[in-house]
């Protein structure tokens, strides 16, 4: 049987978790927009993942990028299932694609998704 004080504790944990979620969302937003002046933004927007760029990527990033192209949007876990690499490895490669300006990430529920430019609906 759950007592009143246990209920309070659960509520407090839930509040804290929601707070952490909100902070993570803000951090993600900041990471996407941080230190990017207008000129940089232009160059990032033009960093399209076209097929010639795909061919010129190093092998490890190319495999990740090819898989993301096929899935359109995906979590590191979904990419790892296809490439048969560790989730952490794919997460690292996906974040490299974000840093290079080819992809961006966004939160959907509790998951972090990666996607190439947002102009294709």
């Amino acid at each position: 049987m759950i007592t009143m004080s246990e209920n309070d504790t659960f509520d407090q944990i839930l509040d804290k978790l929601n707070e952490i979620n909100e902070k993570l969302d803000r951090l993600l937003q900041d990471t996407n927009n941080s230190n990017i002046n207008d000129k940089d933004k232009e160059s990032i927007i033009s960093n399209s993942m076209d097929v010639m760029t795909l061919i010129s990527l190093p092998e490890h990033l190319r495999t990740t990028a090819t898989t993301l192209l096929k899935l359109e949007q995906a979590t590191a876990n979904e990419i790892a299932e296809i490439t048969e690499k560790e989730r952490a490895v794919e997460s690292n490669y996906l974040n490299q694609l974000v840093k290079l300006g080819y992809a961006y990430k966004f939160r959907k529920g509790k998951q972090i998704y990666f996607k190439f430019d947002d102009n294709v609906n």
């Binding site: 033009s46 399209s48 993942m49 076209d50 097929v51 010639m52 760029t53 192209l69 096929k70 359109e72 190439f116 430019d117 102009n119 294709v120």
Partner: peptide, 14 residues
């Protein structure tokens, strides 16, 4: 241009 071609590739895959 290459931006358009990038979209064309994604439309083709879709």
């Amino acid at each position: 241009d290459r931006d358009w071609q990038a979209k064309a590739l994604r439309f083709l895959i879709r």
